[in-house]
Write a protein that binds this DNA or RNA. Structure first.
Lengths: 136, 136
DNA sequence: GTTGTTGTATTAATTCAATAATACAAGGTG
DNA sequence: CACCTTGTATTATTGAATTAATACAACAAC
């Protein structure tokens, strides 16, 4: 399991783990049914307390990314069953409201926001598939 | 100055003040040139330490929302001079990238995001002009 | 100059999230 | 059963962010 922790960048360790595993799943490097490393194993590998990993796994479980089987380990879920669509829409709506509040505050018009959104989408999509295109 | 503080909702007091003043400015209830209440006055009104209000005002100043005149008080800026467009675009780009990452993670397509964005924009715009529609 | 108002600076107390130490519970396998 | 591996629960420690106590500095009005 390729996970890198940076202890001094302000982002809590458990969050770094959550984010990186989310990314691995999103990228298809971890597929439904795959087993995650046991809590203790990953904790040891990262030189971190098992509770910290347990917390990360718990968050991933709540988010519907993984499921735990009591004494048998932690597995990537079948996806599609992560959260009901209604729930996901609710979360997305919150994020969008926040974005709108800030962009309005900064004096952007709606169509400017949408234009930038589309632009970033293509930029990001390209850098995901292609390889290292530049960012910025 | 109509500001309401909720001491028990997890959001730091200074941030609540910042957000509410930002909102007052955005809504036009506070106009360029208007004077904010003196730090001590607002602190007393909210039963809070003056430093807490000072911090809020400082953040508003950094954000370009207000300016301080040494011993004469704190005033809403002329706006238009808040942050250079390039700087604002940079910030907005960060927010948008974050939104895209999350929405992709949750399985939304770009046009779903845009559709919801447009929808929320009209909903919010309506509730702003109308008056107090429900918040929550 | 004195006084009263404005914002500022320094330091201390407090609170809370993150992490760790440690012990517990459940289930599979010989 | 005995044992090993899995995740869980409880409690303590730590460190950063928030808030407060208190004293300072600048300027305007008298």
């Amino acid at each position: 399991m390729q996970i890198r922790i940076n202890a001094h960048d302000g982002v809590p360790i458990y969050l770094q783990v959550v984010q990186q595993i989310r990314y691995l799943v999103a990228a298809g490097r971890l597929e439904p049914g795959d087993e995650l490393p046991p809590i203790r194993g990953l904790a040891e590998q990262l030189t971190v307390n098992p509770n910290t990993i347990a917390r990360a796994y718990r968050e991933l479980e709540v988010a519907g990314i993984v499921e735990k089987r009591r004494t048998a380990g932690t597995y990537v879920t079948d996806q599609g069953s992560p959260l009901a669509r209604r729930e996901r829409t609710k979360i997305l709506t919150e994020r969008i409201d926040q974005l709108l509040a800030e962009s309005t505050q900064m004096g952007f018009e709606l169509d400017e926001v949408i234009r930038l959104l589309q632009q970033r989408h293509t930029v990001i999509a390209r850098s995901q598939s292609g390889e290292n295109t530049h960012e910025q």
